[in-house]
């Protein structure tokens, strides 16, 4: 029974499920560290998922699809950047507007381009990078099966995400860009008075978060599902926001928090096999990742301190 649930695939699946969350969460981290709330991660991810799929359908190339997803994510986040930085509008309202816009836009283009709502035709997906032969039998082979499944069974963006988390972590703490980013979210006027542009710094951060959330969308469609379905992000952008907070506004923290949520998601799927054994409504298992989000946000993990100037538009002079 337990052996059916605790399998190598459970952990491999957790890693896969964590990937889109982590990408969006790291995007959220970068954005909020610069002082801009990005509640639009959900919509940006959906946009990336759609345009990525559309590009693969058009060209047949998954990699061109990934590029389209990243570019469209950055593109739609430019709307958020312009509204919240240049126009100094409320960042939560601007983000909500983008979420609604993305939902409407992808649904509309779906009808326009493919003539029907719902789900697109299947697309060519990115395959796992490694494909090792399994050696004979015995305990060593069993250990190898676990290792291979957890470490070597993944698609490119899953590995790329781990790399991004580490690089972003180092960059935020050890580079000029990172120091300025941290200062931007805490005291933008201090950054301005030493002669560094607040607007430019925030624009770059918002575009980066858009690109990362777009990449998250690509992972969903071009690596995991193999097609686009309306509203397929299904709240992942908001869970990513929670992961960013749980990870205390650090990239590696965001990644680890996403891993926890990803594990809850993977476990939820595995637990479905219990349905025949005990009479628990399957919806209860489906709730698991979301329940975890609520508990985490309700502060079981202790108070996390957000960047001081997050959400405040900056006005020169």
């Amino acid at each position: 029974m337990l052996g059916d649930i605790i399998t190598p695939d459970l952990f491999a699946s957790a890693l896969r499920m964590a990937t889109p969350l982590a990408l969006a969460a790291i995007g959220g981290t970068i954005c909020e560290r610069a002082g801009v709330v990005n509640i639009a991660l959900e919509g940006i991810m959906l946009t990336g998922a759609f345009f990525g799929t559309a590009m693969v359908l058009l060209t047949g190339s998954p990699w061109l699809g990934v590029i389209a997803a990243v570019a469209s994510g950055a593109g739609i986040s430019a709307v958020h950047a312009f509204a919240s930085i240049n126009l100094r509008s409320n960042q939560v309202i601007s983000g909500t507007a983008i979420n609604l816009l993305a939902l409407g836009l992808t649904g509309f283009l779906m009808e326009l381009w493919y003539g029907h709502p719902g789900t697109t035709d299947p697309i060519k997906v990115l395959r796992p990078i490694f494909n090792f032969e399994s050696p004979g039998g015995g305990a060593i082979a069993e250990a190898w099966r676990w290792f291979d499944s957890i470490v070597f069974s993944h698609t490119p963006i899953v590995y790329l995400t781990i790399l991004i988390a580490i690089v972003a972590q180092v960059a935020i703490h050890r580079t000029k860009w990172g120091l300025r980013l941290r200062a931007l979210g805490e005291h933008p006027r201090a950054v301005d008075t030493v002669g560094v542009s607040v607007y430019r710094g925030r624009w770059v951060a918002v575009l980066m978060s858009g690109a990362l959330a777009g990449l998250a969308g690509a992972n969903l469609t071009i690596e995991q599902v193999g097609s686009f379905t309306e509203n397929m992000t299904n709240g992942r952008g908001f869970i990513a926001l929670a992961a960013n907070i749980f990870g205390r506004w650090t990239p590696v923290g965001s990644y680890l928090a996403s891993l926890l949520f990803g594990f809850a998601d993977a476990l939820q799927i595995k637990l479905q096999i219990l349905r025949g054994v005990v009479s628990i409504p399957p919806q209860l298992f489906l709730m698991l990742p979301y329940l975890l989000t609520v508990i985490v946000l309700a502060g079981v993990i202790g108070r996390a301190v957000a960047p001081a100037a997050v959400g405040e538009p900056y006005e020169k002079g």
Binding site: K176, L179, R182, A183, E186, H187, A190, V191, V194, G195
Partner: peptide, 19 residues
Amino acid sequence: MLVEPLTVTENIVLGREPG
């Protein structure tokens, strides 16, 4: 014009960091 969570050194070099 100081960023409170940052260190003294980080605040002083902000904008003109050596490296």
